[in-house]
Design a protein around this nucleic acid. Structure first.
Lengths: 89, 89
DNA sequence: AGATATTTGTTCGTATGTATC
DNA sequence: GGATACATACGAACAAATATC
């Protein structure tokens, strides 16, 4: 469980945690991040709040989302998820 | 964008606009009116303010609302949306 | 093909806290 | 203090996309 501060919105604080985990390699590029439902359970927040978290991360470009599937960590570069074929030359 | 006057509440002024559009036929009976989210964007107001707008219009009978769907222009008469077949006599 | 489960997208309903007038 | 207005947050319902059985 996490201790929410009073001086900042919950959705920002949760977004921070996800960002940190991505930076730490807990969630790696291309892999799925927790669903909104997962965030609800883990952080004890409402779904709309979890949705707000994901929207913020998406707008940053940190993650991308596919409806019906979930959200995934963006590639460090700008390559699209299935767009890298080892053409590294 | 609309110029808000200082001497009257914003939610009243926005309600006026919606009422005018309905009268002008921009939003016709049975069709959907902008969502609260739409109003937020178009008028640059908070969601609670947008909600207040819709509540006022609802209490007048101008619109009716279905949660999860949206709000719709009421029929001029009391007929149901798909109940008029030109039976005018 | 159909039913079900999961997941995100969007809508309205409501309450609280803060700031302003 | 009351009315207005904003942001945050939780709840509930409807909708669409995806995957599985």
């Amino acid at each position: 469980m996490i201790e929410f501060r009073q001086d900042r919105p919950r959705w920002e604080q949760v977004a921070d945690v996800i960002r940190e985990r991505i930076a730490a390699g807990v969630y790696r590029p291309g892999s799925r991040v927790p669903s909104e439902n997962d965030l609800m359970q883990e952080f004890g927040i409402a779904r709309m709040t979890a949705h707000k978290v994901m929207r913020a991360l998406r707008q940053e470009g940190t993650i991308y989302t596919v409806r019906g599937l979930g959200s995934f960590v963006s590639q460090p570069s700008n390559a699209k998820p299935s767009d890298e074929k080892g053409s590294s030359t």
